[in-house]
Design a binder for these strands. Structure first.
Length: 420
RNA sequence: GUGGAUAUAGCUCAGUUGGUAGUAGCGCCAGAUUGUGGUUCUGGAUGUCGUGGGUUCGAGCCCCAUUAUCCACCCCA
C-alpha cells in the first residue's frame, strides 16, 4: 500500500462520520439553548500564544506541540493548536469583544494537535468541543458552564460518567498553599519518585497527581488546597456547590484533581468515564481568572471546558451500541433500457429539487440487482421504469419495508412519498 | 519519551515440529426460465503472508532491523 495517514490520525467516513455529525448537531442545539455562539479560530497561531496561554511548564508546551516556521523573512514560529482556549482568548482581545455586552459566551468545535503516542481515546489529531464564558466572576457562571457540560452528556445519552469537582483557590491562596505543600514535600522527599522531585520545584501541585504507589502513600497525608482556601475562595466554592445542587447535578468533591494546564484558578472539574479505557476524562475544565490578563488584556474572569469528541463517542457507543449508517435516500429509481434510463435521470432530478432524496442506477445493473442495490442503500421506496411505464405514464412504487406497492403517475411521486 | 502485544484476502481470523496459503465466517460480484430487494441455494473474484535484511536446499512460520496498529505508563480531551 502506498502512503498511509500520519500516525495518530483518522479518516472520518461511514457510520462513524454520521455519528460525529449527529454529535456536533447536538452540541450546536445545546449551545443555542444556553445562549452560546460559535467561534472558529485558526488552526495555527503564533507559538508564543500557546506558550503564554497554556503555560511554559506544561507537557503540552514542553514536548507535545507541532511547531513550524513559515516562509516569511521574519522567521516566525507557529504551532498547530494543541487546545481551544488560547485562540479564543486571543480572538476575544483582538476583536475587542470585551467592548460588547458582557458576558461573552462562546463555543467551538475544532481539531487539535498534540504529538503524543496514540492509544485508546488518544490521537495526534483529535477533536474538541469546548465553551468559554468571559466576564462573569460569580459561582453562577461556573455552575452554568458545568450545567452545560452535564446536559451535553444527558443529551448524548451518556450515563456512567461522574463529575469530579475541586477548587484550587485564587492566585494568592494558591501561592500560600504552595509554600505549605513544598514544605511538606521537602520533609518527605526521600520517598518521592524522581519526576515528583522535579515537579516539587517546578509545579508542586502536580505532585498530587502522581499515580506511583510509593508517592501515593505520602500524598494521601499531604495538606490539601481545599483546606487552605481563603474565605472568598471558600464562599465561591460553596456557591458553586449550592447552584449544582439546585440544578440537580450530582458531583463528587475530589481534592486530587489538579489539571495539567497552568491557567486554572478556583473551580476545576472533570467528567470521568470508567468504561472507555485509561483515558477516562471525557470533559475537563474550570475557571481561569488570570488568563486574560496574562494574555495582555484587562483583568477579566473566565470559565470554560473542553470535551474530547472521540472520547464522547466511545462512551456513546458503549451506551447505545455500534454506530449505524444514517438513511441517505427516500427513493431508488431503477431503469431498463436506454430511453427509460434517460427518463429516470430526469425524474430523479425533479424529485431531488422537490426535496426527495433519490438515487438511480449508475452501473447498468440488471433489474434484480438494481433492487438489491435499493435495499443495500436502505431506500424507503423504489420503482422501476421501463417501456411499460414510459407508455402508460404510470409507475408501481414499492415500499421497501412492507413490500406493499401502489400505481401512480409520474407527477404524483413527490407527494406520495412526502405524504407518508 | 518508557514498556507489552500484534501485523496472513475488503473485514474477523485458521495455517499444526520451517516444505512455497484456507471447503473458514462475514462482505463483495454474479446466477437460480429472459421486468423487482430483504430468506435460501449455487458459482466467482481478490493475497507482493506489513516492509527490508539474515539463517536454511527450502520461511507465513526461526533471527535482526524497520514501520504501523492496539494497550498501558506519562500526560490529557
Amino acid at each position: 500500500m502506498g502512503i498511509s495517514a500520519p500516525r495518530g490520525t483518522q479518516d472520518f467516513y461511514g457510520p462513524y462520520m454520521d455519528a460525529v455529525l449527529e454529535l456536533e448537531a447536538t452540541m450546536r442545539d445545546l449551545c443555542d439553548d444556553f445562549g452560546f455562539s460559535e467561534i472558529r479560530t485558526p488552526m495555527f497561531e503564533r507559538l508564543e500564544l500557546f506558550q503564554r496561554g497554556v503555560g511554559e511548564t506544561t507537557d503540552i508546551v514542553q514536548k507535545e506541540m507541532y511547531t513550524f516556521t513559515d516562509k516569511s523573512r521574519h522567521a516566525r514560529e507557529f504551532a498547530l493548536k494543541p487546545e481551544g482556549t488560547a485562540g479564543v482568548v486571543r480572538a476575544y482581545l483582538e476583536r475587542k469583544m470585551y467592548a460588547e455586552t458582557q458576558p461573552t459566551k462562546l463555543y467551538y468545535i475544532t481539531p487539535a494537535f498534540r504529538y503524543e503516542k496514540p492509544q485508546k481515546g488518544r490521537f495526534r489529531q483529535f477533536h474538541q468541543f469546548g465553551i468559554e464564558l468571559f466576564g462573569a466572576e460569580g459561582p453562577e457562571a461556573d455552575a452554568e458552564v458545568i450545567g452545560l457540560g452535564y446536559q451535553m452528556l444527558q443529551r448524548l445519552g451518556i450515563k456512567d460518567v461522574v463529575l469530579h469537582l475541586n477548587s484550587l483557590g485564587d492566585a494568592d491562596s494558591r501561592k500560600k498553599y504552595n509554600e505549605i505543600l513544598v514544605g511538606f514535600l521537602k520533609d518527605n522527599e526521600e520517598g518521592l519518585c524522581e519526576t515528583c522531585r522535579e515537579r516539587m520545584v517546578k509545579n508542586p501541585l502536580r505532585v498530587l497527581d502522581c499515580k506511583i504507589e510509593s508517592c501515593q502513600a505520602i500524598i494521601k497525608d499531604a495538606p490539601l488546597m481545599l483546606n487552605h482556601l481563603s474565605q472568598a475562595d471558600t464562599a465561591h466554592f460553596e456557591g458553586v456547590k449550592a447552584y449544582l445542587e439546585e440544578m440537580e447535578i450530582p458531583y463528587e468533591v475530589d481534592p486530587w484533581i489538579v489539571r495539567g494546564l497552568d491557567y486554572y484558578t478556583r473551580t476545576v472539574f472533570e467528567f470521568i468515564s470508567n468504561d472507555i479505557g485509561a483515558q477516562g476524562t471525557v470533559c475537563g475544565g474550570g475557571r481561569y481568572d488570570g488568563l486574560i490578563e496574562e494574555m495582555g488584556g484587562q483583568p477579566t474572569p473566565g470559565v470554560g471546558f473542553g470535551a474530547g469528541i472521540e472520547r464522547l463517542l466511545l462512551t456513546v457507543e458503549n451506551a447505545k451500541g455500534q454506530f449505524k449508517a444514517r438513511q441517505k435516500v427516500d427513493l431508488f429509481i431503477g431503469a431498463m433500457g436506454e430511453t427509460a434510463k434517460v427518463k429516470a435521470m430526469g425524474l430523479a432530478n425533479k424529485l431531488r429539487m422537490a426535496g426527495v432524496g433519490t438515487s438511480v442506477d449508475l452501473l447498468g445493473k440488471s433489474v434484480k440487482n438494481q433492487m438489491k442495490y435499493a435495499n443495500k442503500i436502505d431506500a424507503k421506496y423504489s420503482f422501476i421504469i421501463g417501456d411499460n411505464e414510459l407508455a402508460s405514464g404510470q409507475i408501481t412504487i414499492k415500499n421497501m419495508e412492507t413490500g406493499d406497492s401502489d400505481t401512480i403517475g409520474f407527477d404524483q411521486i413527490a407527494d406520495y412519498i412526502k405524504k407518508v
